[in-house]
């Protein structure tokens, strides 16, 4: 049995052309990140959760296996989640993508020593590669990173560090600050797998929104005595028309609710996920090398309502 990788990159997406040119953007970013990690001689796996694939379109997993350089294909495992889970789990019919339940599916099945929950359009900086390889990461600590947004319209057809590190290509953005180092937290949450599992991943009880679930994880971590810190180096984000930063002020109320859900008390109220978080009991079936399908089974679906697990921050109950 091979040793577990140092890092698990947990991503979620599907072949729906989100934000335009989704697939080419995603593949370019993923290849860049994997090359960066390989340069630093860091072993890594990619856990891609293809949440509720769009009917009638090829699977993102298949496209990825075709497009990725052969040397990286082995380190990618995709879990294709049956579309019925979205409908069975959702508490907000307008919300179309339960992003953090999807990420939990990946976190649950990751095997790395450290797990980085991130997004498909997030690029690791060279300094981040060095920081990850420095051997200074501590377990029982949530690492956050400042996100630098690259200007909309820059030529990102070929990614290279000169392009990324050039301040002329950056959009101004507020830096993350203590105690939570919040702000686009869903783009970079890194911690050891054991602690991630002990915290039972992201909130699966408030399935009304995507927005704020990442922040809520930080509140949960802090409330559980897990320190949060800024890892130092930044990450880069290629701006696109559908991103939250770009469209939060222009989207209609209905559009906003379908993309992100409604705002809620994510700074104060936390959660205590069930033992079977991350669709633990969803039957897994291997479709081909590196591609698994999580079939639908009502037994894997948590109850619609589990109110005693919604708790005030600092008062998390233990099983």
């Amino acid at each position: 049995m091979s040793a577990p990788p140092f890092l698990s990159l947990v991503l979620t997406g599907r072949n729906d052309d989100y934000g335009g040119n989704f697939i080419s953007r995603f593949f370019r970013v993923l290849t860049f990140n994997l090359e960066l990690l390989a340069d630093q001689k860091l072993s890594a796996e990619v856990i891609l959760v293809e949440w509720c694939p769009t009917p009638g379109r090829p699977l993102l997993a298949e496209r990825l296996q075709e497009s990725l350089p052969p040397r990286f294909r082995e380190c990618v495992t995709t879990y294709v989640v049956d579309g019925r889970y979205q409908a069975a789990l959702s508490l907000n019919p307008r919300l179309e993508y339960l992003e953090f339940v999807a990420k939990n599916v990946g976190v649950r099945r990751s095997t790395g020593q450290y797990v980085l929950a991130t997004n498909t359009d997030l690029i690791l900086s060279a300094a981040m590669g060095r920081a990850l390889a420095s051997g200074t990461l501590e377990p029982h600590c949530v690492y956050r990173a400042n996100r630098i947004d690259l200007k909309l319209g820059i030529d990102d057809s070929t990614l290279h560090h000169e392009l990324l590190d050039n301040p002329d290509n950056h959009m101004p953005r507020r830096r993350i600050t203590p105690p939570l180092y919040a702000g686009a937290a869903g783009d970079f949450i890194l911690l050891d797998r054991e602690t991630f599992h002990r915290l039972r991943g992201f909130n699966e009880l408030y399935r009304m929104a995507r927005i704020g679930i990442d922040h809520n994880f930080l509140v949960k971590a802090q409330s559980s005595g897990v320190p949060i810190t800024d890892i130092g180096p930044p990450i880069y984000h290629v701006a696109h028309l559908a991103s939250y930063q770009t469209s939060k002020h222009t989207a209609s109320r209905q559009e906003a609710e379908s993309r992100w859900g409604r705002t809620w008390h994510n700074h104060e109220v936390i959660y205590d996920n069930r033992e079977d978080w991350g669709l633990r009991d969803a039957p897994a079936r291997q479709m081909e090398d590196g591609i698994w399908r999580l079939d639908f089974d009502w037994r894997a679906v948590p109850p619609l309502v589990d109110l005693h697990r919604i708790v005030l921050s600092g008062m998390t109950t233990a099983d």
Binding site: T12, G13, R14, D16, D17, Y18, G19, F22, C52, T54, P55, G56, R57, G83, R84, Y85, Q86, A87, A88, P93, E96, Y97, E99, N119, T120, D121, G186, R210, H240, A242, S243, Y244, S258, R259, F296
Partner: peptide
């Protein structure tokens, strides 16, 4: 919704939502 679906179409299975454009960023 489920009740209405059941009454109208006799289904108890959650439906697969139509194609949508929403993926995290």
């Amino acid at each position: 919704r489920r009740t209405r679906d059941h009454l109208e179409h006799g289904t108890t299975e959650p439906s697969i939502e139509p194609a949508v454009t929403a993926k995290p960023s």
